[in-house]
Design a protein around this nucleic acid. Sequence first.
DNA 1: CGATGGCGTCCGAAAATCAAACAAGATCGT
DNA 2: ACGATCTTGTTTGATTTTCGGACGCCATCG
Lengths: 115, 115
Amino acid sequence: MTEERSSREDLGTRLRDARKYCGFSQEEVARHLSVSRSAVSLMESGSRSVNAMELGRLARLYQRSMESLTGTVSSESGSESVGLLARATAELSERDRQEVLRFAEFLRSRSSTSD
Amino acid sequence: MTEERSSREDLGTRLRDARKYCGFSQEEVARHLSVSRSAVSLMESGSRSVNAMELGRLARLYQRSMESLTGTVSSESGSESVGLLARATAELSERDRQEVLRFAEFLRSRSSTSD
DNA sequence: CGATGGCGTCCGAAAATCAAACAAGATCGT
DNA sequence: ACGATCTTGTTTGATTTTCGGACGCCATCG
């Protein structure tokens, strides 16, 4: 909950910075998103969550990538293996695929440090 | 409203495709997001909105960009002028900047077709 | 100094979300 | 083939969030 809150606040801060950088008022942004101005204020203070579509429109309005707004790293360098695994197992039988997935699940649960 | 709904369904479909491609169950994704499994099901059917943070974590889990999940185009080719404008006005006096913004606002309200 | 614009915050009403529960279909192990 | 297990969709009523309007505050404008 506290964790949730802090990253929402970070997002809010970035949103506010981006908006001010572009010279928009909350009112204008509100109209752009079809929400009330107070909603925008709450978003920027982290007291209201921003949904995916709103994030998309904001990114477009502010000329920024979504990632730069949320602060998430698009792709952690270490493992691009996920897609490849899926591709590989797609050709196996339903049975064997299940095996592989089970094993992968096992590995995931074993090393719970990373995602 | 109908518009809102359809793009949420699109997002849901992409989320479901991505999840299946990676071989995850809704249960696993739910744990990853710290939500109930039913929530994931509703997300994928478009009956529940996905907030920014959830979208971020999903993008990371599925090894995809947020844009590819929401289907939004990161930057519409036509106008990269917004950032530039902001940069330019940053050096003006408070007064003059207000003038410019007022003018920009006027232009925006004039041609209400685009964003 | 009055007016205006931008913003934060509070409020009750309305909507969204929650998790738990059940049903259904598929696949598994034996 | 049969029961066990897994995965998913859907419903339900309680809870939480969000809504937009209103108010006050502060800065700037005229």
